[in-house]
Design a protein around this nucleic acid. Sequence first.
DNA 1: GTATAATTAGAACGAACGTTCGATTTATTA
DNA 2: TAATAAATCGAACGTTCGTTCTAATTATAC
Lengths: 202, 202
Amino acid sequence: MTQTNGKPAPGRRNSQYQKRLSSVLRAASKVIARDGFEGASVREVAAKAKIGLSGIYYYFESKDELLYALQHHAFSTLIESLQEKLAQLSSPEDRLKAVFDNHFQYFANNMDDLKVCVHEIESLSGKYYKKVLKVRQEYYGLVKSVVAEVTGRKNYATNLATLSLFGSLNWVYMWYDKEKNIDIDKVSSQFLRVFLNGVKAS
Amino acid sequence: MTQTNGKPAPGRRNSQYQKRLSSVLRAASKVIARDGFEGASVREVAAKAKIGLSGIYYYFESKDELLYALQHHAFSTLIESLQEKLAQLSSPEDRLKAVFDNHFQYFANNMDDLKVCVHEIESLSGKYYKKVLKVRQEYYGLVKSVVAEVTGRKNYATNLATLSLFGSLNWVYMWYDKEKNIDIDKVSSQFLRVFLNGVKAS
DNA sequence: GTATAATTAGAACGAACGTTCGATTTATTA
DNA sequence: TAATAAATCGAACGTTCGTTCTAATTATAC
């Protein structure tokens, strides 16, 4: 299940195909993160991926599908790695810490992808939007259930707290500065502490 | 100081001029909030404002200046109304409550404007970007000082807490549903409670 | 080595965009 | 009412965009 679209099997040159495809994805991530989806041009993505303009359309049927692939892959990875961490933890507070750490770690290692996920949520429509919405809600549901373990109830307040939490996490790309070598683990711990104390006291 | 640009004085028909101008701003706010700045077309803004395409350029010198006017006005209003509220309060917790309420009230009454402020921060460049950055940082500094009153210190933790707070507030437009008649005051109280308990316990 | 499929390259399309310009209409002044 | 300024309009310009198509190239298979 490494394929993101319905293209015919790429034969034995599979490894070359995959390398090209992921270089296109990496380029797209960079350009879209910098210019926004509407502002990003397929021409520049192609140039950055060292491929012809029309070459993009051998790997993706449209600019939309490119964005879809980026977002879907990022959310899937986030969910997968979070579930792996959660499977080994039982204490609600440890599990909540895993939520924070998982998100921040993914952010630290894939800033452009996460920014594209957060900032271009509404740039898709139709089937692509629906598919991304589904995994996004899956991720949201997962986090919400962990928050509910801490608060002890699945009520409106827990729901709002989760939304507040997502706000905090999703805003990070706006102020985090790679150049400043900020310790992302400390940020995660600090965010966790404030949120945890906040919901426990309520 | 009702003028946002350096246009010549509009004579006695000032009232008509101002009405047109604000109808352009309202239309722009709607369209940009829905389609994003890059995706929004000046043609549709003009249509929604019931003016010719070229008429827009009588009031604004460029699409960029339009966005600048929207953002600068929104931040200025946010700062002004917050300062009015703060001037009458002395208790740190009451003042923090005023920060939440002020932001949520403005959001409730000007959703499109606030969304454009949050979502299109990076859509400007050059002089317009710098000017908006300035008022944005003024607003940030104001909120941060109130948070510092509650925590009792202006350290790194307070700084991070403020960033976390802004994330929560700025994310609201992504999930708030006007149709569902959500009580925005309750949302504000709930967000305040979690944040306040969080920073007090730390 | 020849046929077949996978991949790339280049040129071109129509559409939409922000902006400009000159003419025209509407309002104000005297 | 005549002269002046403010405001609006419609048409057009040049550019960039996403996408398509066909031909060429490269790798695989027999």
